[in-house]
């Protein structure tokens, strides 16, 4: 009796936008580091979703969006550096530290930031999806359409590169 619902319904579409637009946007942002480009790709992905709505069930919508973004991103020529905003979380802890420590910490953050920006797109996307979005490897593997083993590898490589760039701490 229960037929898989497709996406050709404005309410369904709006709901999918509510649920997925922001994660998808951040996903693209990890890749390209350009807010305007992320806006464009998100719009493109949702437009494609609507154009193909008859063929896509609600369950498939999410993976469709990520796949479209992945492909669209591969087609983009210009890859930008990712620019991250500095951390504003966890301030309480640092309040107790000495000024020297605070200095060191801010230097460390600055270094980490540039290092992250310099990571390869593949490593950075996987690493930031895990660290900032809190995604598990299996989820990342699904989003990027790669194996869990490959995610593990990218994570290890990302950590090793970052450690090398920042230097021993």
């Amino acid at each position: 009796m229960k037929k898989p619902q497709n996406v050709c319904n404005e309410n369904t579409f709006n709901r999918l936008y509510e649920a997925h637009s922001k994660p998808v946007w951040r996903f693209i942002y990890f890749k390209c580091g350009d807010t305007a480009q992320a806006d464009d790709l998100v719009q493109e992905a949702f437009i494609k979703l609507w154009q193909n709505c008859a063929k896509i069930t609600q369950e498939k919508a999410k993976s469709f969006l990520y796949t479209v973004c992945n492909n669209a991103f591969l087609n983009e020529v210009a890859h930008h550096k990712v620019v991250l905003k500095h951390a504003k979380r966890q301030p309480e802890k640092t309040n107790f530290h000495s000024p020297e420590f605070l200095m060191e910490e801010s230097q460390f953050h600055e270094k980490l930031k540039t290092s992250l920006e310099n990571l390869s797109e593949a490593q950075r996307t996987a690493f930031l999806l895990n660290r900032i979005e809190g995604k598990k490897y299996a989820e990342i593997a699904e989003m990027l359409n790669i194996s869990v083993k490959a995610v593990e590898k990218r994570m290890s490589q990302a950590l090793a590169t970052l450690r090398k760039e920042i230097g021993n701490i």
Partner: peptide
């Protein structure tokens, strides 16, 4: 490094205009 990275924040998407 991992913990520090988690503390970074991202620019936010502007949902409405998109």
């Amino acid at each position: 490094i991992s913990n520090a990275t988690s503390a970074f924040e991202l620019p936010q998407m502007d949902s409405e205009p998109n």
